[in-house]
Amino acid sequence: MRFSLLKRARGVGRWWRRIVLAILLVPLGLVLLFRFVPVPGTPLMLVRTVQGYGWQHDWVPITRMAPALAHAVIASEDNLFCTEAFGFDTAALQGQVSAWWHGQRPRGASTITQQTAKNVFLWPGRDLVRKAAEAAFTLPIALLWPKRRVLEVYLNSIEFGPGLYGVEAASMRYFQRHAADISAAQAARLAVILPDPLHWSAAHPGPYVAERAQTILRRMGELGPLLDCAE
């Protein structure tokens, strides 16, 4: 009887080890796969499709994007992107942890690498489980992908409007031109709408979006070496 119980316990232990190994290796395998392969779709695209928003997504390599697009999202979303060694802004992360510890709602401070992890691999939401999963994907992305690949995947996967994903689809929808032909001013307007793409329009910007786009355009000219990794 004791031998039977011991044998069963060992069998259960083997299964748990296999499950834990799969949990560790499957995300790493996906990160490695998308280091080289275009991302065909994301969980958010599926969610939005179920919500009735449609799905317009045209992948283009970063060599067929105007450089201003990468410059604009760095200037708008993550000024220190090119200098972040492990995909995190440690100062902002410490501020988020401090706010949570004191019972406050942490402010959003995600880097472009974190946003790429979230958009490509995870479900929408702000719960702690999703944030932990985001961190688990962010580190291998930062270690295994060059900065330009992170930008390439981000710019191809991010939501720009209802049912609209990636800079090629957004450029055609809002400006009737390919991503390769976008001007710096248009790139700035696209970057500005990323925090609320379901309600803001790059083609018909309201006062806030127009003013913010001018700020981003000016910042693009000031960042200098902080844009080097996008070249």
Rank of each mutant, 00 (worst) to 15 (best):
L155D: 00
H71Q: 14
Q96D: 04
I193W: 01
E152H: 05
M172L: 15
S183H: 06
H102A: 08
M172A: 09
I62L: 14
A66R: 03
A109T: 07
A109K: 03
K131Y: 08
L164R: 02
N156Y: 07
S76T: 10
S110P: 06
V129C: 03
H57P: 00
W145S: 01
K131Q: 12
N119E: 11
L69E: 01
R107Y: 05
I112K: 02
T63I: 12
Q115W: 02
W101V: 13
V150Q: 06
F121G: 04
L143C: 11
Y154E: 00
L93M: 15
M65E: 11
I62W: 06
T63K: 14
H178P: 06
G103S: 09
A117W: 01
A99E: 14
H102T: 13
S98L: 12
L164D: 01
H102P: 02
L80N: 14
P61E: 08
E77H: 05
L144V: 13
Y165K: 02
V129S: 10
A180C: 07
R173Q: 14
A132V: 13
A184Y: 00
V120T: 07
L194A: 06
N119C: 11
L144N: 08
E168R: 07
A136Q: 02
L80Y: 06
A109R: 04
W59H: 14
Q96G: 04
R148W: 03
A185W: 03
T116N: 11
H71N: 12
Q115G: 03
G87K: 04
Q96P: 01
A188E: 05
V73L: 11
E168Y: 03
M172F: 06
E168L: 04
E84K: 08
L151M: 11
K118E: 04
Q114D: 08
V73G: 05
Y174Q: 02
L194H: 09
A72S: 13
I193A: 04
L190F: 12
W55L: 15
A109V: 10
W101A: 15
I112R: 00
A70C: 10
T111S: 14
V60Y: 02
P195H: 11
A184D: 02
G125K: 08
Y174A: 01
I158T: 13
S171V: 00
F137W: 12
E152D: 13
W123L: 15
L69H: 06
Y174N: 00
N156W: 12
H102G: 06
D181Y: 08
A188Q: 05
A66C: 12
F175L: 05
G103F: 09
G87E: 08
S157F: 03
R126K: 14
H57Q: 11
T83C: 05
M65C: 08
I74Q: 09
G125I: 14
A136H: 02
T63N: 12
Q186K: 04
Y165T: 03
F137Q: 10
L144S: 10
F121M: 13
L155Y: 05
T113R: 08
G95L: 07
P146N: 12
A179M: 04
P146A: 11
F86M: 09
P146G: 10
R107F: 07
F81E: 00
Q115F: 00
L93R: 10
T90V: 13
A68D: 15
L155Q: 02
Q96M: 15
Q176A: 15
D181E: 15
N119H: 08
S171C: 09
F137S: 08
S98N: 10
P67W: 03
L139H: 05
A180V: 13
G95C: 05
S183T: 15
S98M: 10
W55V: 12
P124N: 10
